[in-house]
Amino acid sequence: MLNGIWGFFVIGGILTGAFLGRMDLVTRAVIGGGKSAMELVFTMAGVVAVWSGILKIAERGGMIDALAHKMNPLMDFLFPTVPREHKARQYIAANFAANFLGLGWAATPAGLMAMKELQKLNREKGRATGAMCMFLTVNMSSLQLVSVNILAYRAEYGSAEPAEIVGVGIAATLITTLTGILAAKLLEGRD
Protein backbone atom coordinates (compact mmCIF):
# COMPACT_ATOMS: atom_id res chain seq x y z
CA MET A 1 0.00 0.00 0.00
CA LEU A 2 2.70 2.45 1.03
CA ASN A 3 4.79 1.48 -1.99
CA GLY A 4 1.79 2.18 -4.18
CA ILE A 5 1.13 5.61 -2.72
CA TRP A 6 4.79 6.62 -2.85
CA GLY A 7 5.07 5.43 -6.45
CA PHE A 8 1.90 7.27 -7.38
CA PHE A 9 3.26 10.48 -5.87
CA VAL A 10 6.64 10.30 -7.59
CA ILE A 11 5.51 8.97 -10.99
CA GLY A 12 2.32 11.03 -11.06
CA GLY A 13 4.16 14.13 -9.93
CA ILE A 14 6.85 13.87 -12.60
CA LEU A 15 4.39 13.02 -15.40
CA THR A 16 2.05 15.91 -14.57
CA GLY A 17 5.12 18.12 -14.28
CA ALA A 18 6.17 17.13 -17.80
CA PHE A 19 2.63 17.59 -19.11
CA LEU A 20 2.19 21.02 -17.51
CA GLY A 21 5.68 22.24 -18.38
CA ARG A 22 6.79 22.47 -14.78
CA MET A 23 9.87 20.29 -15.01
CA ASP A 24 12.11 23.00 -13.58
CA LEU A 25 10.02 22.96 -10.42
CA VAL A 26 10.05 19.15 -10.30
CA THR A 27 13.82 19.15 -10.64
CA ARG A 28 14.07 21.52 -7.72
CA ALA A 29 11.67 19.34 -5.71
CA VAL A 30 13.68 16.16 -6.29
CA ILE A 31 16.91 17.81 -5.25
CA GLY A 32 15.40 20.01 -2.56
CA GLY A 33 13.27 17.26 -0.99
CA GLY A 34 16.20 15.54 0.62
CA LYS A 35 17.56 18.85 1.75
CA SER A 36 14.35 19.95 3.42
CA ALA A 37 14.10 16.55 5.11
CA MET A 38 17.59 17.04 6.54
CA GLU A 39 16.65 20.51 7.74
CA LEU A 40 13.54 19.12 9.39
CA VAL A 41 15.59 16.41 11.07
CA PHE A 42 18.03 18.94 12.45
CA THR A 43 15.25 20.91 14.09
CA MET A 44 13.34 17.86 15.26
CA ALA A 45 16.29 15.79 16.51
CA GLY A 46 16.86 18.04 19.50
CA VAL A 47 13.19 18.23 20.42
CA VAL A 48 12.65 14.50 20.06
CA ALA A 49 15.77 13.80 22.14
CA VAL A 50 14.56 16.09 24.93
CA TRP A 51 11.11 14.50 25.00
CA SER A 52 12.54 10.99 24.87
CA GLY A 53 14.66 11.88 27.87
CA ILE A 54 11.71 13.28 29.80
CA LEU A 55 9.63 10.29 28.77
CA LYS A 56 12.28 7.96 30.13
CA ILE A 57 12.20 9.70 33.51
CA ALA A 58 8.41 9.38 33.56
CA GLU A 59 8.77 5.72 32.66
CA ARG A 60 11.32 4.97 35.41
CA GLY A 61 9.32 6.92 37.96
CA GLY A 62 6.32 4.74 37.20
CA MET A 63 4.19 7.61 35.92
CA ILE A 64 3.52 6.09 32.54
CA ASP A 65 2.65 2.79 34.15
CA ALA A 66 0.14 4.59 36.35
CA LEU A 67 -1.29 6.40 33.33
CA ALA A 68 -1.62 3.13 31.43
CA HIS A 69 -3.39 1.59 34.42
CA LYS A 70 -5.87 4.43 34.54
CA MET A 71 -6.55 3.88 30.87
CA ASN A 72 -7.04 0.12 31.22
CA PRO A 73 -10.79 0.09 30.51
CA LEU A 74 -10.23 2.05 27.29
CA MET A 75 -7.18 -0.04 26.38
CA ASP A 76 -9.06 -3.29 26.99
CA PHE A 77 -11.65 -2.13 24.50
CA LEU A 78 -9.25 -0.77 21.86
CA PHE A 79 -6.46 -3.32 22.17
CA PRO A 80 -7.90 -6.59 23.50
CA THR A 81 -4.97 -8.56 22.07
CA VAL A 82 -2.34 -6.55 23.98
CA PRO A 83 -1.85 -7.98 27.49
CA ARG A 84 -2.48 -5.63 30.38
CA GLU A 85 1.07 -5.45 31.68
CA HIS A 86 2.67 -5.20 28.25
CA LYS A 87 4.98 -2.26 27.53
CA ALA A 88 3.05 -1.43 24.38
CA ARG A 89 0.15 -0.22 26.50
CA GLN A 90 2.41 2.19 28.36
CA TYR A 91 3.79 3.77 25.21
CA ILE A 92 0.35 3.94 23.64
CA ALA A 93 -0.91 5.69 26.79
CA ALA A 94 2.00 8.15 26.64
CA ASN A 95 1.38 8.76 22.93
CA PHE A 96 -2.34 9.41 23.43
CA ALA A 97 -1.68 11.72 26.39
CA ALA A 98 0.94 13.73 24.48
CA ASN A 99 -1.29 14.00 21.41
CA PHE A 100 -4.20 15.06 23.55
CA LEU A 101 -2.18 17.90 25.06
CA GLY A 102 -0.90 18.93 21.65
CA LEU A 103 2.71 17.88 22.34
CA GLY A 104 3.28 16.46 18.88
CA TRP A 105 7.03 16.12 19.27
CA ALA A 106 6.60 14.16 22.50
CA ALA A 107 3.98 11.95 20.89
CA THR A 108 6.24 10.82 18.05
CA PRO A 109 8.93 8.99 20.09
CA ALA A 110 6.27 7.37 22.30
CA GLY A 111 4.32 6.33 19.23
CA LEU A 112 7.34 4.83 17.51
CA MET A 113 8.19 2.88 20.67
CA ALA A 114 4.59 1.69 20.87
CA MET A 115 4.87 0.38 17.32
CA LYS A 116 8.11 -1.41 18.20
CA GLU A 117 6.40 -3.10 21.16
CA LEU A 118 3.33 -3.99 19.10
CA GLN A 119 5.60 -5.51 16.49
CA LYS A 120 6.99 -7.86 19.18
CA LEU A 121 3.47 -9.25 19.59
CA ASN A 122 3.12 -9.65 15.83
CA ARG A 123 3.41 -13.18 14.49
CA GLU A 124 3.51 -12.15 10.83
CA LYS A 125 6.09 -9.35 10.81
CA GLY A 126 5.30 -7.79 7.43
CA ARG A 127 1.59 -7.50 8.14
CA ALA A 128 -0.06 -5.02 10.50
CA THR A 129 -1.86 -6.45 13.52
CA GLY A 130 -5.33 -5.34 14.49
CA ALA A 131 -3.83 -3.45 17.42
CA MET A 132 -1.51 -1.54 15.06
CA CYS A 133 -4.38 -0.64 12.76
CA MET A 134 -6.41 0.58 15.73
CA PHE A 135 -3.50 2.52 17.23
CA LEU A 136 -2.70 4.35 14.02
CA THR A 137 -6.33 4.96 13.16
CA VAL A 138 -6.89 6.66 16.51
CA ASN A 139 -3.61 8.50 16.09
CA MET A 140 -4.58 9.78 12.63
CA SER A 141 -8.08 10.78 13.66
CA SER A 142 -6.51 13.72 15.52
CA LEU A 143 -6.64 13.61 19.30
CA GLN A 144 -5.42 17.11 19.94
CA LEU A 145 -7.87 18.99 22.11
CA VAL A 146 -6.93 22.56 21.17
CA SER A 147 -4.76 23.41 18.22
CA VAL A 148 -2.86 26.45 19.46
CA ASN A 149 -1.14 27.02 16.11
CA ILE A 150 -4.47 27.52 14.40
CA LEU A 151 -5.59 29.98 17.07
CA ALA A 152 -2.36 31.89 16.57
CA TYR A 153 -2.92 32.07 12.79
CA ARG A 154 -6.49 33.21 13.35
CA ALA A 155 -5.27 35.99 15.63
CA GLU A 156 -2.60 36.96 13.12
CA TYR A 157 -5.21 37.26 10.37
CA GLY A 158 -7.39 39.62 12.35
CA SER A 159 -9.96 37.33 13.92
CA ALA A 160 -12.06 39.18 16.51
CA GLU A 161 -12.39 36.03 18.59
CA PRO A 162 -9.70 33.50 17.59
CA ALA A 163 -10.77 30.95 20.22
CA GLU A 164 -14.45 30.90 19.25
CA ILE A 165 -13.86 27.75 17.20
CA VAL A 166 -12.40 25.75 20.10
CA GLY A 167 -15.69 24.18 21.20
CA VAL A 168 -16.65 23.21 17.67
CA GLY A 169 -13.12 21.94 17.08
CA ILE A 170 -13.34 19.65 20.09
CA ALA A 171 -16.72 18.34 18.94
CA ALA A 172 -15.33 17.67 15.44
CA THR A 173 -12.25 15.95 16.86
CA LEU A 174 -14.49 13.74 18.98
CA ILE A 175 -16.52 12.83 15.90
CA THR A 176 -13.45 11.88 13.87
CA THR A 177 -11.94 9.81 16.66
CA LEU A 178 -15.18 7.93 17.32
CA THR A 179 -15.61 7.34 13.58
CA GLY A 180 -12.09 5.95 13.33
CA ILE A 181 -12.55 3.66 16.32
CA LEU A 182 -15.91 2.42 15.06
CA ALA A 183 -14.55 1.73 11.56
CA ALA A 184 -11.48 -0.06 12.89
CA LYS A 185 -13.64 -2.16 15.23
CA LEU A 186 -15.99 -3.12 12.41
CA LEU A 187 -13.12 -4.09 10.12
CA GLU A 188 -11.19 -5.95 12.82
CA GLY A 189 -9.92 -9.24 11.49
CA ARG A 190 -10.34 -8.26 7.84
CA ASP A 191 -7.48 -7.82 5.41
Binding site: L2, W6, M115, Q119, T176
Partner: peptide, 27 residues
Protein backbone atom coordinates in the same frame (compact mmCIF):
# COMPACT_ATOMS: atom_id res chain seq x y z
CA UNK B 1 1.18 6.09 8.30
CA UNK B 2 4.44 5.86 6.40
CA UNK B 3 6.52 6.91 9.38
CA UNK B 4 4.99 4.50 11.88
CA UNK B 5 4.56 1.45 9.68
CA UNK B 6 7.91 1.72 7.93
CA UNK B 7 9.71 2.21 11.25
CA UNK B 8 8.88 -1.42 12.10
CA UNK B 9 8.94 -2.80 8.56
CA UNK B 10 5.23 -3.45 8.16
CA UNK B 11 4.16 -3.42 4.50
CA UNK B 12 0.64 -4.79 4.64
CA UNK B 13 -1.22 -1.96 6.32
CA UNK B 14 -4.64 -3.69 5.97
CA UNK B 15 -7.60 -1.51 6.89
CA UNK B 16 -5.64 1.35 8.46
CA UNK B 17 -5.81 3.66 5.43
CA UNK B 18 -9.55 3.25 4.78
CA UNK B 19 -10.29 3.87 8.47
CA UNK B 20 -8.07 6.95 8.64
CA UNK B 21 -9.46 8.36 5.40
CA UNK B 22 -13.02 7.76 6.53
CA UNK B 23 -12.37 9.48 9.88
CA UNK B 24 -10.82 12.47 8.11
CA UNK B 25 -13.62 12.69 5.57
CA UNK B 26 -16.28 12.56 8.25
CA UNK B 27 -14.31 15.26 10.08
Amino acid sequence: MSLYFLSVGVRKTRYTLPCALLANMVG
